[in-house]
Design a protein around this nucleic acid. Structure first.
Lengths: 341, 341
DNA sequence: AAGCTTATTTCAAACGTTTGCGGAGAAGAC
DNA sequence: GTCTTCTCCGCAAACGTTTGAAATAAGCTT
């Protein structure tokens, strides 16, 4: 912290009045004479006075800062969430401290400690892929700091949450494939300890069952990134598993699958259709463009932040928790629309 | 700030000793008896005591926080920079407050005010596309808060900087196109008020001149995003401008160009080669894959943060400013390699 | 002129922590 | 028994701000 920044005391000294008078003058308190107010405000502007937010935080026992724990900022979805968070927070006069867990449990635990030490007024969390233990979240609760989970929530943990209807979106995506003529669809699934991983799988299964199609355990493969998708596709092709569609848990995985298929000479979508999830920057620019589910990251960020701020600003924080389900919409592009043959 | 969080005073009261003793016991000060130390540390652990970072900041006049002003977090390059910043900062025990300017001058000015009010110990800045006036940076300097510019610097502003050698990278990229047989290369340029915009253009020009190729003013078009690239390409095709290569100021622009070319039936790279800049997530997945310049965002983040921390922690901050030039390397992919015909 | 308002300002404490200094008590030196 | 030297601890001030309460000064009554 620079020693150069000037304080209320500096103004008081210069004007030979007390700091309390300066404070009140700046806040336009009725007890202060016009004359003094003018003098104070003029000098404050001249010296470019900025109230010390740190001192204010201490005094008011409120930091006007919210903490964000996010798995990895480099994903389009998560960075849009952050944009949404920032916009709402800044409009409300709150700062944002962002901590990446990098999908690591240990790092996530450290993140919560950091945020508590910094006395953030509330925390937004999307849990890491690794996290299977939740003590650190209970610790936040013990300290009476409000938490809102977004996208990746903790099953069974009572708290405000903002999620997309993953189950329904996955169901609709799969049904779209079925309507397009797919009969043997595999699912590249995410980690099953994440609720979203489970839900997307369940939605996929529901669509298959509803259409009276076969479901097979070996059609559900754990693959949630580019490289794993590549390996899974190679495996499928080498084993000559007979399929006509791939529904992937996210776009990177879908694109990895599509690439490998095309490299091996498989036509997408005519031989195998591909659909992704959580529409990002990438989906529009592949060839064919990738059908995907738009998760509305920005909106998720704004909604989560609004819910958090509401609780932070409530005098009585003990009202019931809220779960907001955003609806995701399927963006149909070339990768899933078989050409008439 | 939650009232639930416990303080040194709570521990002192419980143990019937003074807060100063607790403070010293926690810091293992030699004046304190073993007995007391043990009692204090035990209770602190039991109550899950976390030092109040806000109070510490105030006392030590040092917030252990650095501020980051970044144009738009949703770009792969910038989010990797943030990852680099965070990793170095956290290892050094510093927090990070991130502010997006959203490429707006006004917002950038507000960002600097916010960061100063929060008494950050230093600031990392990449200026917005709009910024043409720099008073707000001089204000930071007046307040003796160290600043490091990364990627997009302020011409003529004396400060630490981390940049990539945009000139050289653009030169090499263009030369690569020339060596591949291009003779009539247009440049989709960025805003010329940004140094990087100028440098990339100059590098392009140098390569052309050096090869004895023609340069034309109308071959330099201001286009720095997907949509502008689309329009520029349409214009080129409609006007039947005879060219065989496009060097774009960034990847999104290059991809926009490639898309439009392909939609109009132009073969990339054989008829027109395309090269981008600042290799991101996108470049690998187009077809053909995009040749681009890898700007090493993560490294830029780490280096900038190291330079900033060094200055923050220096007792005498008046040593000369440092300009670190990272070298970017050209990643050659399909979009620029014409097939032998 | 003494008392009473009213207007304006200052005092002091507080937020949680650190730290120089002084002090109580015990132990050792002579 | 007095003086010195440790050992261990508490006091108080400080960081910058806010705020209830007390103080001051000036203006009005009567």
């Amino acid at each position: 912290m620079s020693s150069g920044l000037i304080t209320i005391k500096d103004i008081a000294r210069e004007l030979r009045i007390s700091p309390s008078t300066v404070s009140r003058a700046l806040k336009n308190h009725p007890d202060i004479s016009e004359e003094t107010k003018i003098a104070v405000n003029e000098l404050a502007r001249k010296l470019n006075y900025q109230p010390n937010a740190v001192a204010l935080s201490l005094k008011q026992r409120r930091s006007n800062t919210i903490g964000v724990i996010i798995p990895e900022i480099v994903h389009y979805f998560f960075s849009s969430v952050i944009s949404g968070i920032e916009d709402v927070a800044y409009d409300a006069g709150f700062n944002v401290i962002i901590c990446q867990s990098n999908e690591k449990y240990d790092r996530e635990v450290v993140n919560t400690r950091t945020l508590l030490a910094n006395r953030v007024d509330g925390i937004l969390v999307s849990i890491s892929k690794e996290t299977q233990q939740f003590d650190h979240f209970y610790k936040i609760r013990e300290n009476e700091v409000p938490v809102v989970f977004y996208d990746r929530v903790v099953p069974g943990f009572e708290a405000d949450q903002v999620i997309v209807d993953d189950f329904d979106a996955a169901y609709r995506a799969t049904r779209h494939m079925i309507e397009g003529g797919c009969k043997k669809i595999v699912h590249f699934a995410g980690p099953q300890n994440l609720l979203i991983g489970q839900l997307r799988k369940e939605g996929y299964l529901k669509a298959l069952r509803e259409a009276g199609l076969e479901t097979r355990n070996e059609w559900i493969m754990e693959a949630d990134n580019f490289e794993k998708a590549r390996l899974a596709v190679l495996n499928i092709l080498d084993e000559k598993v007979n399929i006509d569609g791939i529904f992937a848990v996210n776009d990177t995985t879908a694109i990895g699958a599509m690439h490998t298929l095309q490299k091996r000479g498989v036509k997408v979508p005519n031989q195998i259709a591909v659909v992704g999830f959580s529409d990002g920057r990438l989906s529009g620019i592949t060839d064919p463009a990738l059908t995907s589910v738009d998760q509305h990251g920005y909106e998720m960020g704004t909604v989560a932040t609004e819910i958090l701020l509401k609780r932070i600003l409530a005098e009585n924080k003990n009202y019931p928790f809220e779960t907001r389900v955003l609806n995701a919409n399927l963006v149909i592009r070339g990768s899933s629309v078989k050409e008439i043959s």
